[in-house]
């Protein structure tokens, strides 16, 4: 591994003070990707900024309006082990609890997963489906973007120089809604998604009709794809509609053929995963909470 400097700032202001000094900079949250990338020579830096000593990056909690605010460097396990998160946002728990093995989840963060911007990142489709917003900070202030606006290409996020991802905000979920995230991997653990689907289904008060579907697909395009599902609104929440949603997913997918999966396989899988995730979401939406 190439040599680099390590800095562990205690505040956001201190983080920003280390930026713009001409050094190639990388950020360390859980390190489960960046340490490996540095070791394998896939990324290079002069300084590595450890974000885990900045309090606001490491905590999570619900605000009074029901928004879940998650510090970008908080470990996944702390989020999915939170009983309140489990109760209110099972669709987020789906994703957070299947990124890597338990060892990885002790360290890896949603922020890291988002910033790595892998098209196969598990948290991104789930967060998009939930309508999450991302708080981006810099020395000159902060801005917010929708989760779907963040990825810019394979391995590329839309942070500008001097910016870091500070917080993930998951808004309170609509009444009569349910969300789910599913991925397909060849094994049952230790794999990168071949295809994935995050959904949120909002039903009419009597559960008979679909009011809204948010559907995000992973590993079938250069970035996670948010599918236009306007045509599903007003339809019955049944197998026929879900099949249509699956077809919409297949049509929206723009997969590549690589060592992890083929084009036709991925198109087929996003359809299957969409249907299955919608079934889970429907169950969650109609369960008494």
């Amino acid at each position: 591994m190439e040599a680099f400097d390590y800095v562990a700032p205690r505040s956001l202001a201190e983080v920003y003070s280390h930026l713009g000094n001409g050094k190639r900079t990388l950020f360390l949250a859980g390190g489960t990707d960046v340490i490996v990338q540095l070791r394998e020579g896939r990324r290079h830096c002069d300084q590595l900024i450890d974000l885990k000593h900045v309090p606001e990056l490491m905590r999570h909690g619900f605000t009074s309006d029901g928004t879940l605010e998650i510090g970008a460097a908080s470990p996944l396990a702390e989020i999915y082990e939170d009983a309140e998160v489990q109760r209110r946002l099972p669709g987020l728990v789906d994703a957070a609890s299947l990124i890597g093995g338990i060892q990885i989840q002790s360290r890896a963060s949603l922020g890291g997963n988002l910033c790595n911007a892998s098209p196969a990142a598990d948290s991104t489709p789930a967060l998009m489906a939930l309508g999450a917003r991302l708080v981006i900070g810099s020395a000159s202030g902060s801005r917010e973007v929708a989760a779907e606006e963040f990825p810019a290409g394979p391995g590329q996020n839309s942070l500008r120089p001097g910016e870091i991802l500070v917080q993930i905000k998951v808004p309170p979920q609509p009444a009569h809604s349910g969300a789910a995230y599913l991925r397909f991997i060849p094994r049952n653990e230790m794999d990168i998604a071949v295809a994935s689907a995050g959904v949120r289904l909002v039903l009419s008060p009597d559960n008979s009709r679909i009011e809204d579907v948010r559907l995000a697909l992973g590993a079938v395009g250069p970035t996670v794809i948010l599918v236009n599902t306007n045509d599903l609104a007003g339809k019955a929440a049944n197998a026929e509609t879900f099949k249509l949603a699956g077809e919409m997913a297949s049509a929206a997918a723009r997969p590549i053929d690589d060592m992890r999966g083929g084009v036709a396989q991925r198109r087929r899988l996003v359809s299957v995963l969409t249907v299955r995730a919608l079934n889970t979401a429907l169950q969650r939406a109609t369960e008494a909470r």
């Binding site: 360390l28 390190g31 489960t32 340490i35 885990k52 470990p75 338990i102 060892q103 990885i104 360290r107």
Partner: peptide, 18 residues
């Protein structure tokens, strides 16, 4: 695998300075 602050981690993916 080691236990760090009560959680299991892969010690190959932790920097010693951390």
């Amino acid at each position: 695998t080691v236990i760090m602050n009560g959680r299991i981690v892969n010690s190959c993916c932790v920097l010693a300075v951390e």
